[in-house]
């Protein structure tokens, strides 16, 4: 169902994200300061200050899911967040989306505190969250309808974004008639159609087959380059993070903290199979290993009990 067309990115001009000097880890493990392309920085697009969140567990105890997270996301940046499962990645995105409130700390967008969901930040859920009572086309239209766009414009954009994810012929299908990968693409189209400033993506491609994912990587990179959107992309696939991100933030497991940041300075467009991408991913994975082990141990401890 995916047309056999090649996606020749028409030499998109990749933006140079505005960055503060970022401390990062070089490939040989020494900490270096990465050269900055553009020193002068406006206010961060998204800013997290000392953000913590604890969940009330069933047993009544408190689970500290996020612990004093400090994070600046710059306008137009493609930020990837990696971490073992259960480290609070989804929670972090929900907080930025305004669907949850932090226990303490402050989240700001363009300098203003985030208190509620807004169509300037659209989240693509890990489990797509399409509405089963609507057709694919109506799902894509939903956000635009809530924004109050005219019928004509809604139809226009629906057509455009469905074509972008190669699902034009499924406009009148129901979500349950599509495969998991197709549903995730509908969710992508639905988010893009509202044209948000910030796109929050929660492991959106985890369930996709390799070809579809490669295609969507290219597509997403192109959309990002053309529109200058800010993207926060959560994944547990380090290679994917390196493939896409300007910067990769590594989160630790329980408590969820920012363990390390890596600036990915490889030229774009990149490919998942590139040696450089693999090498950088390897480097990050070395750091991630401890956290994965911690998360697995927690899982097994739970199973044993």
């Amino acid at each position: 169902m995916i047309p056999n067309t090649k996606f020749v990115a028409a030499e998109p001009q990749f933006p140079t994200p505005c960055r503060k000097p970022v401390q990062s880890t070089s490939l040989c493990g020494k900490t270096v300061i990465v050269p900055i392309r553009q020193v002068e920085c406006s206010t961060p697009k998204i800013q997290l200050q000392e953000v913590s969140l604890s969940y009330q567990t069933d047993t009544g105890s408190e689970l500290l899911a996020l612990d004093r997270i400090d994070l600046d996301v710059h306008p137009g940046e493609f930020l990837c967040i990696v971490g073992p499962s259960g480290c609070g990645k989804s929670t972090l995105l929900h907080l930025i989306a305004g669907l949850q409130k932090p226990t303490s700390g402050r989240i700001a967008m363009d300098g203003d505190s985030v208190t509620a969901p807004g169509t300037d930040r659209i989240l693509i859920f890990q489990e797509h969250g399409l509405f089963p009572w609507l057709t694919v086309g109506q799902n894509v239209e939903f956000g635009m309808k809530m924004k109050g766009l005219s019928k004509a414009e809604r139809e226009d954009r629906t057509r455009h974004y469905l074509r972008l994810v190669h699902l034009s012929q499924f406009k009148d299908s129901r979500p349950h008639q599509l495969s998991g990968g197709m549903r995730q693409r509908v969710a992508l189209a639905r988010a893009l159609a509202t044209e948000p400033d910030v796109l929050l993506m929660d492991e959106p491609f985890a369930a996709l087959d390799a070809q579809t994912r490669d295609m969507l990587h290219d597509e997403l990179e192109k959309i990002w380059a053309e529109t200058g959107r800010t993207i926060i992309f959560v994944t547990h696939n380090v290679r994917e993070a390196v493939r896409l991100g300007d910067r990769v933030v590594l989160m630790s497991f329980r408590p969820g903290q920012v363990k390390k940041e890596f600036v990915v300075d490889l030229p774009r467009p990149r490919h998942l199979e590139e040696v450089e991408v693999a090498r950088t991913a390897r480097e990050i994975l070395d750091q991630l290993r401890d956290e994965i082990n911690k998360s697995l141990e927690a899982e097994y401890a739970h199973e044993r009990s």
Partner: peptide, 24 residues
Amino acid sequence: VANHSDLSTAVESRAIGVRTDHAA
């Protein structure tokens, strides 16, 4: 640790087997 040393390839190999249209 070795079994989980490369998350990315693990995810890929799992995903390859996914059929894209099983609904029909």
